[in-house]
Design a protein around this nucleic acid. Sequence first.
DNA 1: GCCAACGTTGGC
DNA 2: GCCAACGTTGGC
Length: 150
Amino acid sequence: MSYWLMKSEPDVFSIDDLKRKKREAWDGVRNYQARNYLRSMAVGDEVLFYHSSCAVPAAVGIARVRKAAFPDPTQFDPGSDYFDAGSKPEDPRWSAVEVEFQRKFKKPLPLELLKTLPELAELALVKRGNRLSVMPVGETEWQAITALAT
DNA sequence: GCCAACGTTGGC
DNA sequence: GCCAACGTTGGC
């Protein structure tokens, strides 16, 4: 089993939204590196849910991959913000996965805190200029983070 | 194929 | 709101 971290802006879609909806398609990813990670996900993989672009950027809970990568429907929807005229249905450019709510941490683990953990020194999240919205998390990294979660 | 311009992300 | 970092676009 693999571990991942996925960013979401809480104003758009928060851990509470996922908790309420139970499961959600993770679509709209329009970055090739992030897309490739989506395609590497397997059912059952665990995902750290991270809130970005907000007052306190933080890891806030855990989700689980419920459905492996499939063509992101929003790329073919002209009404969607994520519409991609260059993507052909016979050769979809973008992928989505479906995730399912697992749990919400009682207290968020702020980026500021995560940055202090020596185990996370190599995690893309804490690196300068990091913009990747989907990234792999190593076993040791996962343990270090979840050990702090309540 | 290079690279400047531009747009986006995301922390602060 | 600002700005650094980075990806993408498009002219040449």
